[in-house]
Design a binder for these strands. Structure first.
Lengths: 333, 333
DNA sequence: CTTTAAAATGTAAACGCTTAACTCTTAAAA
DNA sequence: TTTTAAGAGTTAAGCGTTTACATTTTAAAG
């Protein structure tokens, strides 16, 4: 382990003061071009890199954003992670990655983030207690929820309008002539699943459909598979299945196929997320596309505005998305 | 943004010196239980958390490990990320996540890691120039390559024995009566793909099979699809296809199915990675399982040993893995 | 009731940086 | 020429910790 080279070393080599070295590395400092060049050359020669830890300490700005993510194996989230990375990178932020092990982000995970003085935290598919929110707030850490919200909502959030998406999916299925609809939900403590189902049910009821068989598929492939099985065993006449996310839809489709149902001839399936695989030929899943790019754009904007104090009140932004039609839904008219 | 509460604040409230507060939070410090409790209570009341940035500065230990990952959308890697997170978390490390945008990890990505004084860097599916390795070395940063290695190899690495896996896959295909074999490779600058193909070819040649049609599928679904198409157009008699990773195998299978080939009756397909989806019914892919848990275990051990100076020479650990038989290969005997 | 060692606490010096305050040049304005 | 001001560079004060060292307290031993 070689000694770290510090600004002082560079200063000595270049024959200037250590503070000049600091200035040479600062965009907005007044320093002559000649001297800056000298210093930069010396730095180059020594392989000097400013120490972000020391800088963070004095400026009180770590330039680190925490990202909390739970179900990394759901292909929707790697995509989200990738895009957050790219946007935040552009803004000069680093990412501290937290893979939340529980539904609810744990006390110690919150503490870790705080200890490292992250400037902000993005929560994707995990739940945040209001205690946790307060803890972040007390420490001046901005929080933005991605596709989640919590009732007491003192936090920024950007959310796909799950309720209206649920409605429109219901409407679409009705319009294409389906009458026996089933729903495979995610965990009942996630606002995403809840809202999607509320919208869906809302529309169906308006059209006089009261009985809507449901099963919890826990947002996983296996869950979707099992839920479809239960559903079909008890309600053989179902002609369309709405799954609260794509992975569950894949599970459901695989169950249906192995059980001898033809998709979409016997039963239509519709998903949510428009994950890459939805386009793969064995599935060709009709699904709801969340405008991920836009959502991330907004989430980062919210985050930065909050960090830079250009924000008074927490904001909740809703975005819509649209239906992507593929081959898993049949027009029964 | 509330003022951060510091050890000094706690010290004042508890009526002790600031250094005692520090000691109260250190496992191995000599401090009376009574006083420790007092301090911890005061800290609790104020919501104090030690500042890891300041600690890092003085101890010269950030307790951050960088993870560099490129193709996050290949389901193999989220799994890897999750497991690394969990292991490193146990050891009290945080993760700084870098989503490398290019095949080769870029100069500025290296710099970022160095600026934040990460103690070590784990490189998964990205390439590291020896210049980059040197830069890390000069800064006393441990590097371990996960499933990659580079020729000048001054770095630790843990690697699935891709060569022998390739051999055994070749043997398996031969044993099951295949004679016309094709290969879909990953990018030609990845040691993983290269070794797998070398082993595969090696075995086939030993059995007198000289002509082995190949296409580069770039380790992606689309690439696998296109590669299979090209391969079949020019070599209609192929009866088995070895794909250097699972996602390409999925692409290839989807092409084959849409083109009217039956798997495995007309053509067998074999993958590599044993990603979750390989078990899904539309694919039921026979594939090579890398012992991911073991590999990560070893990688982390290498990392920690290196960080703690308990290591003289860089080590390269090879692990084997095993074939997982599903339904995509037919015994033609 | 000393004496002595050990344990607990306090004091103060770093760690590597940024930045306010100050000094010294240099050149333009008077 | 003198005055003034802007520009360039330096000095030094932190940021919130850990930790070596000094000092005080406590407990054990004589």
């Amino acid at each position: 382990m070689n000694k770290k080279v510090t600004a002082m070393d560079v200063a000595r080599l270049a024959g200037v003061s250590q503070s000049s070295v600091s200035r040479a590395f600062s965009k907005s400092a007044s320093i002559s071009n000649k001297k800056r060049k000298m210093i930069l050359d010396a730095a180059e020669k020594l392989g000097y890199q400013p120490n972000a830890i020391a800088r963070g300490l004095i400026t009180n700005q770590s330039r680190i954003i925490g990202i909390v993510m739970r179900d990394v194996q759901n292909p929707f989230y790697p995509e989200v992670l990738e895009k957050f990375y790219s946007r935040l990178s552009e803004e000069g932020y680093q990412i501290m990655f937290i893979n939340s092990q529980n539904d609810e982000v744990q006390e110690y995970e919150v503490s870790q983030l705080i200890e490292y003085s992250v400037e902000g935290v993005i929560i994707t598919d995990a739940l945040l207690t209001s205690a946790a929110v307060q803890k972040f707030n007390r420490n001046g850490i901005s929080v933005v929820l991605f596709n989640r919200y919590i009732s007491d909502s003192m936090s920024n959030a950007v959310i796909c309008n799950n309720f209206s998406a649920g409605q429109r999916i219901g409407q679409y299925l009705l319009d294409t002539g389906h009458r026996q609809l089933g729903f495979i939900s995610g965990p009942s403590n996630t606002s995403t699943s809840l809202e999607r189902s509320r919208g869906f049910i809302d529309t169906l009821q308006k059209h006089g459909i009261e009985s809507i068989p449901m099963e919890d598929g826990g947002f996983t492939y296996e869950g979707g598979f099992a839920a479809a099985e239960k559903l079909m065993k008890h309600h053989a006449k179902i002609d369309a299945l709405f799954c609260a996310n794509d992975v569950m839809a894949f599970g459901a489709m695989d169950y249906l196929n192995t059980a001898g149902y033809r998709i979409p001839e016997d039963i239509s399936v519709i998903g949510f997320d428009n994950v890459k695989m939805a386009d793969w030929s064995p599935y060709a899943l009709t699904t709801w596309q969340q405008p991920v790019d836009e959502m991330i754009q907004q989430a980062v904007k919210l985050m930065l505005d909050d960090i830079n104090g250009q924000q008074e009140e927490p904001e909740m932004n809703f975005v819509d998305g649209c239906l992507i039609e593929r081959a898993s839904v049949k027009n029964r008219r």
